[in-house]
Design a binder for these strands. Structure first.
Length: 566
RNA sequence: GCGCCCGUAGCUCAGGGGAUAGAGCGUCGGCCUCCGGAGCCGAAAGCGCAGGUUCGAUUCCUGCCGGGCGCACCA
């Protein structure tokens, strides 16, 4: 019951009819692309179908458009399955080089709004995902310190993408891969150990690759608070082993806390250790060896990733017998596929993009179609304050943490700012703008629309104004341009979801939310709601209800609150 | 050197094979006897350069020039 789908189907039917009638030679018909034309004079919808068809049909576009429009206007080739497909059509006209513009009876808007209101909270959800099982793995930051703003972008975008895909009818699982094995764990233990010794007054050298963050000192201090000096007597390696576990447990808990307070949750936390411990890495390597994708050289085992487009082959087991990170990742990805996901989406920082080709090569070597693994690369984040770049340094461990950012600008603003840009663009995060509680701030602009609507309903309630049954509301009272524009924008919501999900691009939803809020504010300024003629009042209240439902829904996808008052 | 991302308004960014390229911030000018002025209305201002494909390119391709990020038996 989508106007565009119905029109598109009718166009196809008309085109087939024209083909049968010999207007053009038999050929495969292109897909129908319907769009909202750039100018009102061009009608409610337009298509370049005739021009697209011209290419394959080897016939002049206007001639094809002529055949199609006359067929449509005379209702000569109606789809038997949709006998009322053209009930909204007033006229199809040819324009320019061969565009077909559709002028609809205004009923289509009211039918649309009616549909939206009937759908209620479910409005916008689509089934375009077809229940495809997708796993989205994101953040997956090492549990060696607090999350910083870069992780924040991954967390916000990832969780929004999960929400978006679910709204579009995909079966989604959100997963976090915990890198709790390998060198960085040793570094963590050594760093905590050094801080521990320092605080205890024992002279020590801070490890070369250690973590310099303040949080490591805090971890050491906490160990002292709980266990005092008792670890001093232990041999170093035993102390390191204990510190490793204590630190890991603490860091992991902090990660979960940070993410939770950022509105991000995972269905599964996958521990890298499990695939080390249960022999999965070894088994995977064996398989790849048996299939000839792994060979031995210079005492190490190499994945022949060049066979699948990588620049060079990669070591999976070092000459000292210790598997590399890649080995674990290969086993991990195998595990994901074995778990039955149709598709895997990994969200990585741009500094990892060079890693894509080798993992895809490994996936291919294991016999899985590499297209089933999608890696989304997230460009970097820069913070700006007072118009100046906020410097960050990994070496000194002095960088802005996600927790600090949330403290500074709030969860909603932080999420919105992270999501609102395409992931392909580097993000200049304007702290002052995000922080401002004024009209400058797009987050508040959107939330304000929702709060305003709530305020309207508070007043109708106080005044004892009752909403009539939907069937008794004359939606065709809504005739002003502001009202029409608003209904149209609401009507676009399902396809916005479908498109954003297909493109894995949640920033479309941020933009949509802003546009919808804008049209609402504009409408609100032009059209009085409470106190006008009862029929018009009812219709406007219905419209406002639809706006509110849609705003709440899109804010839900963004993971941003929809406040009743601000 | 090679690979990935980005060059669109003064700034930050959307968009995208088609009919007059959008938004926020900033600048300038208007709007509260009226449902929340955290709002509305208006103005100035733009597709890095050069080729190519196409009926049509800001969009696709190639090269160049700028900026970012990578190029480990680290993760």
């Amino acid at each position: 019951m989508n106007v565009k789908d119905l029109i598109a189907a009718a166009i196809m039917a008309a085109a087939r009819q024209a083909m049968v009638d010999g207007v053009f030679a038999e050929t495969e018909l292109p897909a129908v692309m319907l769009e909202v034309p750039p100018q009102k004079e061009f009608g409610d919808f337009a298509t370049n179908f005739a021009m697209q068809l011209a290419r394959v049909a080897k016939t002049k576009p206007r001639q094809l458009a002529e055949a199609i429009t006359s067929c449509l206007n005379s209702r000569a080739a109606l789809d038997k399955n949709h006998p009322d497909a053209l009930s909204w059509l007033r006229e199809a006209k040819i324009a320019g080089p061969g565009f077909i513009n559709f002028y609809l009876k205004s009923d289509w808007l009211y039918d649309l709004l009616h549909f939206v209101l009937v759908q209620g909270e479910n409005y916008g959800r689509t089934t375009t995902g077809g229940g495809e099982k997708i796993q989205v793995e994101f953040v997956s930051a090492n549990p060696t310190g607090p999350l910083h703003v870069g992780h924040g972008r991954g967390a916000a975008v990832g969780s929004a993408l999960v929400n978006l895909l679910r709204a579009a009818g995909y079966d989604v699982q959100a997963e976090y891969y915990i890198n709790d094995a390998g060198n960085q764990m040793e570094n963590l233990a050594a760093s905590v150990n050094a801080r521990y010794l320092e605080i205890m007054g024992v002279e020590t050298v801070f490890p070369e690759n250690g973590y310099h963050g303040q949080d490591i000192i805090a971890t050491a201090q906490r160990i002292i608070d709980q266990g005092g000096a008792k670890y001093l007597e232990l041999p170093t390696n035993e102390r390191l082993a204990i510190f490793k576990e204590l630190a890991l447990t603490e860091k992991l808990a902090l990660l979960k806390e940070d993410l939770e307070s950022f509105g991000v949750s995972f269905d599964k936390w996958f521990s890298e250790r499990t695939i080390h411990d249960n022999g999965a890495i070894e088994a995977t390597c064996q398989k790849l060896k048996a299939s000839g994708h792994i060979y031995e050289q210079d005492g190490a085992l190499w994945l022949k990733s060049t066979a699948y487009g990588d620049d060079k082959d990669r070591v999976v087991v070092r000459d000292n017998g210790v598997p590399t990170y890649l080995a674990a990742d290969i086993a991990y990805h195998r595990d994901k596929f074995v778990r039955g996901f149709d598709r895997l989406i990994n969200i990585w920082g741009s500094d990892h993009h060079g890693y894509i080709s080798r993992v895809k090569a490994a996936v291919a070597a294991m016999g899985f179609e590499p297209e089933r693994l999608e890696v989304l690369i997230l460009q970097m984040v820069s913070l700006y304050q007072n118009g100046e770049l906020v410097k960050m340094s990994k070496r000194t461990g002095r960088s802005v943490t996600l927790a600090e950012l949330i403290e500074e600008v709030g969860c909603d603003a932080a999420r919105f700012f992270f999501i609102m840009r395409s992931i392909d663009s580097q993000l200049d995060f304007d702290l002052d703008l995000a922080k401002s509680r004024s009209n400058e701030n797009p987050v508040y602009y959107i939330q304000y629309a929702h709060a305003r609507i709530n305020s309207i309903f508070r007043q109708t309630q106080e005044a004892g104004i009752k909403m009539p049954q939907l069937a008794d509301i004359s939606l065709n009272q809504l005739t002003s341009e502001a009202e029409v524009e608003l209904i149209k924008k609401i009507g676009e919501y399902p396809e916005e979801i479908a498109l954003a999900a297909k493109e894995r691009a949640p920033h479309h939803m941020a933009r949509y939310a802003h546009e919808l809020a804008g049209l609402f504010h504009s409408f609100y300024n032009q059209c009085r709601i409470i106190g006008v003629e009862p029929e018009l009042q009812a219709a406007r209240l219905a419209l406002v209800t639809a706006v509110q439902n849609t705003l709440r829904s899109v804010l839900g996808i963004l993971g941003i609150t929809a406040p009743d008052r601000m």
